[in-house]
Nucleic acid binder design. Structure first.
Length: 632
RNA sequence: GCAUGCGUAGCUCAGUUGGAUAGAGCAUCGGUCUUCGAAACCGAGGGUCGUUGGUUCGAGUCCAACCGCGUGCGCCA
C-alpha cells in the first residue's frame, strides 16, 4: 500500500491519476504495471504519460480500461492501436500475473480483465477493520463549519442541510484519519440578540421557564417592533392615505425609535459585561442549544457544546481583525465605512460599518483566521447556503490577500464553500407550512419519523416478516432510523448545490434509490448471516459467477469512493456507491445460493462475501450519518 | 444593469483529467416467490444532453453568443 499523501496536496508528479486517487491496492498495482510498460515501450515519452486507467464503462469491456493510447498516439504521430499493442507487449511481464485478458479495442482502448484470484486476494486484503480505507489525513487538520443556528430562533429546513452535509463531511474526514474540528458558528452576538433580550425585558418574561418557542416569538416580535417604516410613511403621505393610516405609521416610527434606543442600551450592557444581562443572554443560548442538540441527536448529527464557536467567541478579535486589514493597506474608508476592494469585481467587502461597529464579514474573517492559525486547519469547509456564495468568495479572497491562509509548512490552506441549494415544497417554492409559516426542522423530522414508523409497523404485521413480534418500542426505534435515513439519503444523494423538492413519499419509499433501500440490503444480509449462524470470515474467496465478481470489484472501489467524496466535498459520490453496492449485492443474491449452496467451500466463500458487503454498507452509511438497523 | 449558478427520458436525478452505442430511479408495460429477507431480481419502451456556432481524431463535458429559470448585489446575517 502506498498512501504517501493526499494527492491533492502531494508534490507535483507524485500523485496518482485522478481516476485512481487513493484507490485500493489492486487498481494501484495495475496502474503501476501500466506505467512501467509505458516507460519500457516509449522511454521518456512514456514516463510522462498517464495510463488513464478507470473502471470499465461496460461489463463487456472487462473490469478496467486504460485510455492512454489515443491521446499519446496523436502527440507522437502514431497509430493508436499499434501503440497500445506495443505498450502491452513491453509490459507483459508485469501485466501477465494480474490480467486474465488484455485486448486493444475500438480506436485504441485497452480492455482489462483481471484474474479472479487477484480480485479475491485484494478483497481478502481489505477484509479487516479498515475495510481498505486508508488514513491519508493522519496528522492533518480540517475545520468543518456546520449547522450555524441563530440563538433564539427555531431551526428550520436550511439548518437541516447545513447540519447533515457538514456532519457527513466531518465523518468522511475522520474516517480518513483527519483531525476534525466541528465549528458551529452560532449567531449569538450583536444587534439581533440585543433586540430579543430587550424585547423580553420589556415583557418582563420569566427566563427560568422559557422555551425556544417563546424565544422565537420574542425574536419575531422584536423584529416587527423594530421595523422603522419610514418608507411606508413617506409613501402614505405621498398617496394621500387616510389620516388613521398615517397616524399609525407615525406612531410606529416614534415607537420604533424608542425601542431602538432600548435595544442599543441593552447591547451596551451586554458588551459591557453587565451581570444580569449576561446571565439572561446565557440563558437564551442554553435554551436554544438544548433544543438544537436534541434535534441533532434525532437527526444523528454529532453536535454538542464543544463545537460551539459562535460570533461571541470572536468578539475580541473583531477590532484586531479590522486593524490588520488597515495595517496591511487592504482596507479603505468609503462613505464612512471600511471596505476591502478586489481587482476583479466591483463589489467590495464591508468589514466595518460607518458607526465603527463590525459586521458578519468581520466575524467570518476572524473565524477563518482562528481556524487556520489556531486550530491549524489546512482545509476549512463551510457548509452554508448557496445564497452566500458571493460573500464567501469575498471572505476567502480577503483571507488570501492578507496571507492568513498561509500554513507554517508554507502551503496554502484550502477554503471551500460547500454551497448547498434550497429545500423546496411541491410548488417549487421554498418549503412552507400550509399556513405559510417557515417549516421548522422539528416538524419536518416528526413527520419523517412518524412516516418511517408507520411503514415499519405495517410491515411487521405480516406474520412472515422478520420484524414480526418485536416490541412496539423496538419497532419505533427502527422506524425512526428509517424515517431519518429517508430524509438524509435523499438530501445527500444528489449534488448538494442543487435545490430539491421535499417529497416524503418518494424519500421513504423502499423502492429505488433511497435510504431505506440501502438499509434493506444491510438488514437482509444481517438476516442471512444470522440464519447461517456462521462467522467463517477466514474462508478462501471463490469468485466464479459473474455476479460474485461484479460484487467483489464493487467492494474494492470502496476506499476510492470514500476519498473521492471527501476530497470533492461530494457526499453524493458515496451515496451513489452505496446504491450500486446494494444493487450488486441484490443481483448476486438473486443468482447465487448462499445458505442453500451445497458445496461447503463455495458456501463459506459466499458467506464471507456477504459479511464484507454488510460491513461496507454499514460503514458507508455511517459516513453519511445514516443508521443501519439489523432488522427492518 | 452587473455578478453568479443551473437547463440531460413524462417526473426526479447521475455522468470523475474530453473517450466506445449518454446511464440510474420513479412512473408505464412484461416476466421471476410451495425453496436463503420479493422492501428484491430480470427484461421492454422512452433522449435533436436549452439553442446556434467554435476548438479536435473524438464534446453532455472545453470556448463564444443567445434563450429560459434561480440566486446575489456596502453599513442585515
Amino acid at each position: 500500500m502506498c498512501w504517501a499523501a493526499d494527492p491533492m496536496t502531494a508534490p507535483h508528479g507524485e500523485s496518482t491519476p485522478a481516476a485512481l486517487r487513493g484507490a485500493a491496492a489492486l487498481p494501484a498495482k495495475l496502474d503501476a504495471a501500466l506505467r512501467s510498460a509505458l516507460v519500457s515501450a516509449l522511454g521518456e515519452a512514456g514516463a510522462a504519460a498517464d495510463p488513464a486507467l478507470k473502471a470499465a464503462t461496460q461489463p463487456r469491456f472487462g473490469d478496467f480500461q486504460a485510455n492512454f493510447a489515443m491521446g499519446l498516439a496523436k502527440s507522437l504521430g502514431r497509430n493508436p492501436r499499434e501503440l497500445a499493442q506495443e505498450v502491452l507487449a513491453a509490459g507483459a511481464a508485469a501485466l501477465e500475473p494480474l490480467c486474465e485478458k488484455l485486448e486493444v479495442a475500438g480506436p485504441g482502448f485497452v480492455n482489462i480483465s483481471l484474474r479472479p484470484s487477484i480480485i479475491a486476494d485484494a478483497l481478502q486484503e481489505m477484509d479487516n477493520d479498515t475495510l481498505g480505507v486508508p488514513t491519508p489525513g493522519r496528522g492533518r487538520r480540517v475545520a468543518v463549519d456546520l449547522c450555524g443556528v441563530n440563538v433564539a430562533k427555531q431551526l428550520h429546513v436550511g439548518h437541516l442541510r447545513a447540519s447533515i452535509i457538514g456532519d457527513s463531511m466531518a465523518r468522511l474526514h475522520e474516517r480518513l484519519g483527519w483531525t476534525v474540528f466541528r465549528q458551529n458558528h452560532l449567531g449569538d452576538w450583536g444587534l439581533p440578540i440585543a433586540m430579543t433580550l430587550a424585547s423580553l425585558e420589556r415583557a418582563a418574561v420569566d427566563l427560568s421557564r422559557i422555551t425556544l418557542d417563546d424565544l422565537n416569538r420574542a425574536y419575531r416580535r422584536a423584529q416587527a417592533e423594530g421595523r422603522d417604516d419610514e418608507a411606508g410613511l413617506a409613501a402614505a403621505r405621498e398617496t394621500h392615505a387616510g389620516p388613521h393610516r398615517i397616524a399609525e405609521l407615525e406612531a410606529q416610527h416614534e415607537g420604533a425609535s424608542a425601542l431602538l434606543a432600548h435595544t442599543h442600551e441593552t447591547l451596551r450592557r451586554l458588551q459591557g459585561g453587565d451581570q444580569a444581562t449576561v446571565a439572561a443572554w446565557q440563558r437564551l443560548i442554553a435554551v436554544t442549544m438544548r433544543e438544537v442538540f436534541e434535534t441533532a441527536a434525532t437527526l444523528g448529527v454529532l453536535l454538542d457544546d464543544t463545537h460551539s464557536r459562535g460570533e461571541s467567541f470572536f468578539r475580541d478579535q473583531l477590532a484586531p481583525t479590522v486593524d490588520a486589514f488597515v495595517q496591511a493597506g487592504l482596507a479603505e474608508r468609503d462613505q464612512g465605512a471600511l471596505i476591502v476592494r478586489f481587482a476583479d469585481r466591483e463589489r467590495p467587502l464591508l468589514i466595518q460599518k460607518s458607526d465603527g461597529t463590525s459586521l458578519y464579514a468581520t466575524t467570518d474573517l476572524a473565524a477563518a483566521h482562528y481556524r487556520i492559525a489556531k486550530l491549524g486547519a489546512e482545509r476549512v469547509i463551510y457548509c452554508v447556503d448557496a445564497r452566500q456564495r458571493d460573500h464567501f468568495r469575498d471572505v476567502f479572497d480577503a483571507i488570501h490577500a492578507i496571507g492568513w491562509d498561509r500554513l507554517p509548512s508554507g502551503r496554502t490552506a484550502e477554503m471551500i464553500h460547500v454551497a448547498f441549494g434550497a429545500v423546496l415544497g411541491a410548488d417549487k417554492r421554498p418549503l412552507k407550512t400550509r399556513s405559510g409559516e417557515n417549516f421548522t426542522l422539528k416538524a419536518l423530522l416528526d413527520e419523517a419519523v412518524g412516516r418511517g414508523q408507520r411503514e415499519v409497523r405495517a410491515r411487521a404485521q405480516q406474520p412472515d416478516a422478520p420484524t414480526a413480534g418485536l416490541q412496539p418500542a423496538e419497532l419505533d426505534a427502527i422506524g425512526q432510523a428509517v424515517g431519518i435515513a429517508a430524509i438524509k439519503y435523499a438530501d445527500l444523494s444528489s449534488d448538494v448545490s442543487r435545490d430539491y423538492v421535499f417529497d416524503l413519499d418518494r424519500m421513504v419509499s423502499f423502492e429505488g434509490e433511497t435510504g431505506p433501500y440501502a438499509q434493506y440490503a444491510h438488514a437482509r444480509i444481517t438476516g442471512i448471516l444470522a440464519k447461517a449462524g456462521a462467522s467463517s470470515t477466514a474462508a478462501p474467496l471463490r469468485l466464479a459467477a459473474a455476479e460474485e465478481r461484479a460484487l467483489a470489484l464493487m467492494l474494492l472501489r470502496y476506499a476510492a469512493a470514500v476519498q473521492d467524496a471527501a476530497e470533492q466535498c461530494a457526499p453524493n459520490r458515496l451515496a451513489a456507491f452505496i446504491f450500486e453496492l446494494a444493487n450488486a449485492f441484490n443481483a448476486f443474491y438473486q443468482s447465487c445460493p448462499v445458505i442453500k449452496e451445497p458445496d461447503a467451500v463455495l458456501r463459506a466463500s459466499r458467506l464471507r462475501l456477504c459479511d464484507i458487503t454488510r460491513r461496507v454498507i454499514a460503514d458507508a452509511l455511517s459516513l453519511l450519518g445514516i443508521a443501519a438497523p439489523d432488522r427492518m
